[in-house]
Computed example of a mutant assay.
Amino acid sequence: MRKITIGIVVLSIILVGMVIPAGFSGEANSVVITYGETTHANSDYKANVDAFFKSQSNLDLKNVAEKIITANDVNKISSTITGKTYSSNQIFSSALVDLNDNDKLEVSVDKSKITTITGDMYISALKSSGIKSGHVYVTSPVSATGESALAGIMNCYEEATKVEIPETVKQAANKEIYTQAEIVENSNVSADNLSKLVDDVKETVKKENVTDHQTIVNIIYNYTVINNVNITNSDIENLANSIEQTQNVQGDINNYEVKVSDAINNTKDTKGVLSGLFGK
């Protein structure tokens, strides 16, 4: 099995002790960037990341809200999922979220730098968290697998809306990304085929409201046959654990969507920027 190299797509993490506010606490930012601390500290790295964001989004970044993501931030989430820890010189990758572009959820990934996680994988995990709209851009100044980037993307959404995503929801979504990254890195299945498999399984599990582990395992196995995807029994178990975790926090996901909708509807300062951000 190949060792996963997380050239660390970095980004954000759960800030311990924060609670979900009833509404927006301060002015909402329609565009937010999270920079890895290594990238932000290196002018050439930051320039390369900014160049990607500008070319892809056509935005003027001068007045865009920024956050720096540290190794401590990343370790808070990676340590609970993979057990890995990172130093301050490993935090590279960055994300930009544009909520002005909110007709649907889109993710643009710098494929020259992000080597494993695809845009469809990010979209799937974000939708499972209750995020339905906005345009997300992900890049890194060096090669990175991309699994840690989801935390930073979520951080962008929190900064933009001033509403905290429940920790249980973050953990489930990040677990999904890490699990898929590990399978892609250690097997012959393509990222696109795995993403399609996971989406099919999640749709069936959610539609049938399945929470039993063995039933989820059976559903995954059936879709591996239907989609002609060759993964190990261990991979199937890991996927089942990930999907089961998401199913078990549906209550938190639903409550989050209600709080976000209430915050948007009760805040006059949004000026329509966030309208429909989490619409189904």
Rank of each mutant, 00 (worst) to 15 (best):
K54H: 08
S57K: 07
N58R: 14
L61Y: 07
A65R: 01
K67F: 13
I69S: 13
D73W: 11
K76N: 09
K76M: 09
S78C: 05
S78E: 08
T82N: 07
G83A: 08
T85S: 12
T85D: 05
Y86Q: 02
N89A: 04
I91K: 02
V97I: 08
L99H: 01
L99E: 01
D101G: 05
L105H: 03
L105M: 06
L105D: 01
E106Y: 12
E106N: 11
D110I: 01
K111W: 11
K111H: 13
K111S: 14
T116R: 01
T116Q: 03
D120H: 13
Y122P: 10
A125N: 08
K127P: 09
K127Y: 07
I131R: 00
I131M: 07
G134T: 02
V138Y: 03
S143R: 12
G146I: 02
S148C: 15
M154K: 05
M154G: 10
M154A: 06
N155C: 15
T161W: 06
K162M: 12
I165M: 03
P166Q: 02
T168Y: 06
K170Y: 10
K170E: 03
K170T: 03
Q171I: 14
N174D: 08
N174T: 09
K175M: 13
I177L: 07
Y178F: 15
Y178D: 05
T179M: 07
Q180M: 13
Q180C: 10
V184L: 05
E185H: 11
S187W: 08
V189C: 07
S190W: 11
D192P: 10
L194K: 11
L194R: 09
S195C: 15
V198N: 06
